Simulated assay, not measured.
Amino acid sequence: MNLPSRDDIQRTFIDFPNDQIISYVDYFSEEKRSQCHIYSYPSLMPYCGSITNNFPGGLFKNVRTVFLHDEYPFEHEFFLRIVQSFPYMQELCVNNFKSQNRKHSDESSNDNQNLSVIKYFFLSELRLVDVHDDYMEEFLFDTKACLPKNVSLHLNYESLQRVTHYFARDVTRMNCAKIDMLYLYGERKRSNSLQEYFPNAEIHFSGFMGI
C-alpha cells in the first residue's frame, strides 16, 4: 500500500500551530490493513486505543483506558514509555502474539541488573488474554513490574499455567498475591494450587474472550 508519511499528514495541518497536531501511520502486513492516528495535543480524551510501537510518546494526564496492539513485539522499554505517557492509567488491554526479542531471565541477577521495575500506580484492570506468554511474564514477574493491590486480571488459563510453572514459580508470587479479581478464559479447571497462588482473589472461569 502507498501510505502517506508522517510529514505528508502534518503538511495538511499547516493552519494549526506547531506541535498541536500529532500523527503517525501503522501498516499491519499480516492483517492487511493500515491505520492512521491523528490527534490534537494535549489531548483531553479518557481513552487511547490501538497504540503500536510507533507511538511517539507525550504526556496524557486525562487518559484512563489504554489499548495496545501490534504485529511487532512490545519490549520492556515500550511499557516504560506507556506508563510515563499515561501516568494515571487505570485500565490496560494488551493484544500481541509476537515474542519479545530482549528477554530477561528470572534466574540470573546479571540479566536483571539493568532492568527497571515498572510501577503501575493506578492500574485497576489488566487484560492479557490475547497475548504471547512473554507479556504475561512482563506483568507478573516482580523483577519487571510492580502492580498495585486490588487489580482485576484477565488471563488465558493455559498460558497462566505455563508462566507460573503450574503455580510454583516464586518470581510471579508477589504480583499474583495483589490480584483481587481473576478472570480465566479457556480451559475450565479449578485447583487448590490456583487458589493458594492467588490467595486474595475471587476467581471466575469464563469462555473465550477476544478483543
Rank of each mutant, 00 (worst) to 15 (best):
Ala145Phe: 01
Val151Leu: 10
Leu155Asn: 03
Lys149Ser: 13
Phe167Val: 09
Val171Asp: 11
Ser159Pro: 00
Arg162Glu: 09
Val163His: 03
Tyr166Gln: 15
His154Leu: 09
His154Arg: 04
Leu155Gln: 02
Leu147Asp: 01
Gln161Leu: 11
Lys144Glu: 09
His154Gln: 04
Met174Cys: 06
Asp170Met: 14
Gln161Tyr: 01
Arg173His: 07
Pro148Lys: 03
Lys144Gly: 00
Tyr157Ala: 04
His165Val: 08
Ala145Pro: 00
Asn150Thr: 05
Asn150Arg: 14
Asn156Phe: 07
Tyr166Val: 13
Gln161Cys: 09
Arg169Leu: 12
Arg173Ile: 13
Phe167Tyr: 15
Asn150Pro: 00
Asp170Cys: 02
Phe167Asp: 06
Val151Asn: 01
Tyr166Asp: 14
Ala145Tyr: 00
Asp170Leu: 15
Met174Val: 11
Arg169Gln: 09
Glu158Arg: 10
Arg162Ala: 14
Ser159Leu: 08
Val151Trp: 04
Val151Arg: 01
Cys146Ala: 11
Pro148Arg: 04
Leu153Thr: 08
Cys146Trp: 04
Tyr166Ser: 13
Tyr157Cys: 05
Ala168Glu: 14
His165Cys: 09
Ala168Trp: 07
Leu160Asp: 01
Asn150Tyr: 08
Tyr166Gly: 08
Asn150Ile: 02
Tyr157Lys: 06
Tyr157Met: 11
Asp170Gly: 02
Ala145Lys: 01
His165Glu: 14
Arg173Asn: 06
Lys144Trp: 06
Leu147Met: 06
Thr172Met: 12
Asn156Met: 09
Pro148Met: 02
Ala168Thr: 15
Arg173Trp: 10
Leu160Trp: 07
Thr172Val: 10
His154Lys: 03
His165Lys: 12
Thr172Gly: 04
Gln161Val: 03
Lys149Tyr: 15
Leu155Asp: 00
Tyr166Ile: 11
